[in-house]
């Protein structure tokens, strides 16, 4: 039986995983944006996520109390140990794919972080308070882009429709807390994502319909992120991300 501290450490680590993997994906837009202003704006979003990952990891490392650091968590764990939601690890795709993912994640986080600010764990609550401001801005961007691309040209609409279809199956696991989370929910530490679900669907439905797009009525759902059961993309991402760090064991940077 794990003690509460150990569980909170695991929880904070997986929240770090979500932020790092998504931040990494967004950072891949650097020098690839559709124009300079958007390139810079995406950089800001990526930086927000990387900063958030560092806060969650640092807290997890503090809880572990074994001298490990944020970098040990980011660079020395394998794909089976990462517990991010699958949606975050999908390749960046085209700009429509990136924006649909952002919209889904931003709406999710806007409720998630709000709830986390009320966590009994004051450190997690503090990280949530800081992150929530960032997410509000991210959501403003992804919502606006959804409207622009949904109502823009035939091509942009087609690309958005395709992206929605490709991502849709990855949203379900967001609302299915696992055992660890259920225990922490009971202690008032973790967020119960089941309670977010209706709001999330309502908001996404409203934004999409304003953008003349629709929630796909598809029946597929891929699950497993919280169990370390990942798509093939994560191991590719990690082998790139960890390559330099792992090639020089024990080195400082």
């Amino acid at each position: 039986m794990l003690d509460l501290k150990e569980k909170t450490k695991q929880y904070s680590t997986r929240l770090g995983d979500d932020s790092l993997i998504l931040g990494h994906r967004i950072s891949e837009w650097t020098s690839n944006g559709p124009f300079l202003e958007e390139d810079i704006a995406l950089g800001n979003v990526a930086l927000d996520y990387i900063g958030r990952a560092r806060m969650f990891y640092t807290y997890a490392a503090d809880l572990a109390g074994n001298g490990k650091t944020e970098d040990d968590l980011a660079y020395l764990r394998s794909e089976r140990e990462f517990q991010n939601y699958l949606i975050n690890e999908l390749p960046r795709g085209d700009f429509a794919f990136t924006m649909v993912r952002q919209l889904f994640v931003d709406v999710f986080f806007s409720y998630y972080l709000k709830a986390l600010t009320n966590s009994n764990d004051t450190e997690l609550a503090a990280i949530a308070t800081k992150s929530l401001k960032e997410t509000r801005y991210h959501l403003r961007r992804s919502r606006d882009w959804t409207l622009r691309l949904g109502l823009g040209t035939d091509e942009s609409k087609a690309r958005m429709t395709k992206a929605l279809a490709e991502i849709w199956g990855y949203v379900h696991e967001l609302f299915e807390p696992d055992e660890l989370e259920l225990e922490l929910i009971a202690c008032g530490i973790a967020v119960d994502t089941r309670e977010i679900k209706d709001n999330w669907f309502a908001d996404i439905g409203a934004i999409l319909s304003e953008a003349d797009l629709a929630i796909p009525d598809a029946e597929w759902a891929v699950r497993g992120g919280r169990k370390g059961y990942h798509t093939e993309h994560l191991s590719m991402l990690l082998s790139v991300m960890q390559s330099v760090h792992r090639a020089h064991p024990g080195a400082n940077w």
Binding site: L20, H24, S27, E28, T30, G43, A46, L47, I50, G51, A53, R54, Y57, E70, D71, A74, Y75, V240, M241, S243, V244, H245, H248, A251, W253
Partner: peptide, 14 residues
């Protein structure tokens, strides 16, 4: 950026 060997370096480089 994707290969920066620490999280601090990753943020700084980005």
């Amino acid at each position: 950026i994707t290969r920066a060997p620490s999280l601090r370096r990753k943020a700084v480089l980005l």
